[in-house]
Design a protein around this nucleic acid. Structure first.
Lengths: 202, 202
DNA sequence: CGAATGACAAATATTGAAATCTGTCAGTCG
DNA sequence: CGACTGACAGATTTCAATATTTGTCATTCG
């Protein structure tokens, strides 16, 4: 088990494994050290605290889960469809995690609840992706004039019901899919160019 | 303390008091009985279980908290402004509860987490109020054609971030007010009549 | 010499025995 | 007679003793 030198990467991998196996409540840094065949004092050489180690694991997971969304944000699908696809994928990914491996999901939810900054930064990056889609849509005339970061935040907030992990207990109810689709319809309607509703001008 | 006969109402009042005083974790039905000067066996004569008693207390609270919203829903303010006022009031009421008496709010959140039906019914009534405002707006031409119950659900979901108690930890952050206003702007834009954006007709 | 160890204090978690609580019901009391 | 009691069994909670874990650091090892 103790092949090469002890690196942060190897510790991270072991920590992930231990967390997966024992869950967030039982995983100790002694367990991690044991899995690596070293003393627990050694892991403190690379991570300042147990909290730091856990946060690092979380960051890795968040980065990996972000990749498919980034790809969609960068695609050349027409912006309205791209935005829809982005949110649908976000929701589906979360949903698959909860339904597919509830324990692992609970583990990452627990880590997320501890680590403040990592989550805030992750949300920030997500909203930047949304904002880039909005900017593309404004350029193409598919969306009305708006402040991309502010609108991105509004969209992210509006869909929280369907992607915020703390609300995952609502995701199994019947009619959840149509409700989500209807919400996206409403939001996209709100983004469409408005040709001056009541009186017409020019 | 034991004036008149023992009625469900008196028990309910005592239970509310005990819950307020001891919190959801410590309040026992023995405490409630004691506050009324009767044996705890007597309260089981009026409520089938501790859970039923707690749910009854919750129902009372929900009914009371609903009144001001009902008044707004019934008012004759122009539908878009009325809708905005309804959601703003909803959010503000929740906010005041959290900031004003966090312990009491936590108590009711705990009760809400236990009682399934009461909450589902409450949400249903809330959405009916929204739907009635939407129907009024369609009649007055302020809103486009839509399915009021479905759109009400979408609006309720979209604003969950700002009124779902489980997310109350987010309500103190700076910029929360503007974010909420922007979300309402976006949603109201999505409800506005759309005069066929690209090509004009009629 | 630098990486790793392991003994240690303080903080945190686990355990299980004792206490309390829920829900029932035969019996009392007015 | 019917509202109320209180003793009771089983479930749940509390609490304090015990064990584990975190984080440090003087010492060892290669």
């Amino acid at each position: 088990m103790n092949d090469s030198v002890l690196t942060p990467e190897r510790i991270l991998a072991a920590a992930e494994d231990v967390l997966r196996r024992y869950g967030p409540g039982k995983a100790t840094v002694v367990d991690v050290a044991q899995a690596l065949g070293v003393s627990h004092g050694s892991v403190y050489r690379h991570f300042a605290s147990k909290a730091a180690l856990r946060e690092a694991v979380l960051r890795g997971w968040l980065a990996r889960s972000m990749a498919p969304l980034q790809a969609i944000a960068n695609s050349r699908t027409p912006p309205p469809a791209r935005l829809r696809q982005w949110f649908t994928t976000l929701r589906q990914a979360k949903r698959d995690n909860v339904l597919g491996d509830p324990e692992l999901f609970a583990t990452y939810s627990a880590l997320a609840a501890e680590a403040g900054d990592a989550i805030a930064e992750h949300k920030e990056r997500m909203q930047q992706q949304i904002a880039s889609i909005l900017a593309a849509g404004m350029a193409s005339g598919d969306f009305r004039e708006l402040d991309p970061p502010a609108a991105a935040r509004a969209l992210f907030d509006a869909t929280a019901r369907f992607h915020y992990p703390g609300l995952s207990h609502l995701w199994n109810q019947p009619g959840e899919d149509v409700a989500f689709t209807r919400l996206l319809d409403l939001l996209l309607a709100g983004l469409a160019p408005a040709p001056t509703p009541p009186r017409r001008r020019k």
